[in-house]
């Protein structure tokens, strides 16, 4: 479904992604771990189409299309969803109105009729339950004054509403207490249907106890330096990142 080949990207002259290769098949969950500043958010942002980054080399195909050629909104309509590490507050636009607009734009792109108010409301009620998000919250301005946990839950709620084929979760676990973490993970697990894929970016392996990945990759200095299965995450939890850093840094100096 998603093929990343030799992806290089930079921001303001600074090369951050330095040759990423990754293949994601339908239904798979890939975890991406790595120390702070290794480029995890950059990778997620480049896939979602953030303009600040310049792709200098490599390619990304998604469902057979050249992803890098598409504007962010088209990528979303093609089925990419990015759950932000830092969800943005948008005063004056309610979550409900925001999602109604988003959903119907995506449907339009895919040649579907817009949902009417009743259909939309029904879907909203259903999905809100999934992440135990309060109706009252959805009537408020998007993310404005939400707690950290509420913002993250809102991200997963939005993902549930938009039903992407690939969800990119950027540190959705950060800032969550264990109960909130469980709710969020639960929500994601319910969206796993054998076809939908996920990239779960996380710093800690904690989340992976709940969202069990098929593959774990370690990103360091803009490259995937190690790949394995969920056992790799446990090993990282135990030993930290230093041994990997040392390995890579030793190789680089050779």
């Amino acid at each position: 479904m998603l093929t990343i080949s030799n992806l290089h990207a930079r921001i303001e002259e600074k090369e951050i992604l330095r040759g990423i290769n990754l293949e994601i098949k339908p239904g798979e969950v890939h975890a991406i771990m790595g120390p702070n500043g290794s480029g995890k958010s950059t990778l997620a942002s480049v896939l979602a189409g953030r303009e600040d980054y310049e792709v200098t080399d490599g390619s990304v195909t998604f469902h057979g299309k050249d992803l890098l050629d598409l504007a962010p909104e088209k990528r979303a309509a093609e089925g990419i969803f990015l759950a932000f590490q830092y969800p943005v507050e948008i005063p004056g636009v309610t979550t409900i109105n925001f999602l109604k607009t988003a959903l119907n734009e995506i449907r339009k792109y895919n040649g579907q009729e817009p949902l009417d108010a009743a259909q939309f409301l029904k879907r909203m009620k259903e999905k809100a339950k999934l992440v135990k998000i309060d109706d009252a919250l959805l009537k408020r301005s998007l993310n404005e004054g939400f707690s950290g946990g509420e913002k993250k839950r809102n991200e997963i709620f939005q993902m549930a509403m938009l039903e992407p084929s690939l969800g990119l979760l950027d540190e959705t676990d950060s800032g969550l207490d264990i109960d909130a973490l469980r709710i969020v993970a639960e929500g994601v697990n319910q969206l796993r249907d054998g076809k939908r894929s996920f990239v779960v970016v996380t710093h800690y392996q904690r989340l992976l106890d709940y969202i069990v990945p098929d593959f774990v990759h370690v990103l360091y200095k803009g490259r995937i330096v190690k790949s394995g299965t969920k056992e790799l995450a446990l090993e990282l939890e135990e030993k930290g990142y230093d041994w990997i850093k040392n390995e890579v840094d030793a190789l680089e100096t050779v």
Binding site: E51, P72, I90, P91, F98, T101, E105
Partner: peptide
């Protein structure tokens, strides 16, 4: 960008925010 990443075209995203 946040709005775009949810499928809302840039022009529409700007318009929605200005209206708000």
């Amino acid at each position: 960008f946040y709005m775009q990443s949810r499928g809302i075209p840039k022009k529409e995203a700007i318009r929605l925010q200005l209206l708000a």
